[in-house]
Amino acid sequence: MLELSRLSIGFRRPAGLWRREVVPALRGVSLDVRAGEVLAVIGASGAGKSLLAQAVLGLLPANAVLAGAMRFQGAPLDPAMLRGRRIALVPQSIAWLDPLVRAGRQVEWAAGRAGLPAALRQPAATAALARFNLGAAASRRFPHQLSGGMARRAMLAIATLGQADLLVADEPTNGLDPENAARVLGHLRALADAGRGVLVISHDLSAVLPQADRVAILRDGALQETAPATAFRGRGEALASSYARALWQALPESGFHPAEASPC
């Protein structure tokens, strides 16, 4: 569904008085997201994983330089044409909702942006919120009056308003307690099971692992490996890169082998 081949992103900045240099941030990343699967991209902060989401949605700042190819359903990806309609974003924090607008109204606006005719926007928004257990009371609230979990579900409602085939979730569990994090990931899993492609970007391997089909490990802007989620078991013998193995072994689920995690 989504194919990234040798995607590189850098940022232009002035070097001295006249010259400009490009600081690389993402180097030659190749990934694909298939329909019906959850692909998790895991990396520490600064690894460049959020840039992936911004590139796919065309939200990179003006001084970004992009190289490589992005294809969506067989055609070159044009984010400005697809975002909101075919590709939807689940942003990383409550700050992405407009603090001055009631939640329900923001969902209605999103319905309009997803291409729904004016008469259908309000019923569609109500239905989308109801899918994620948010009623009329929640939709009348301003974002700061919502809990983190409610806000995340409102953003899931926005992402599922249109006919988006691909969902990009940037740090969907950030700031949530384990119970709410599991709920949000469960929703994403269900959306993938319904036939959509889901790209989950996270730093939290242990939270994402139970719901992911495949896991891509990113480090310092370069892809270490893409492994099936089932490879993360035992002592990580099925993992190809030492960094992925070290990440896995540092988790309690692996039975803790921190001594072997030291090479990084």
């Binding site: 949605l57 309609r85 924090s93 992405w96």
Partner: peptide, 12 residues
């Protein structure tokens, strides 16, 4: 701001 980026991401 982030909320404007989000609006753009929704296709605004």
């Amino acid at each position: 701001a982030d909320f404007a980026l989000y609006a753009f991401a929704q296709g605004a």
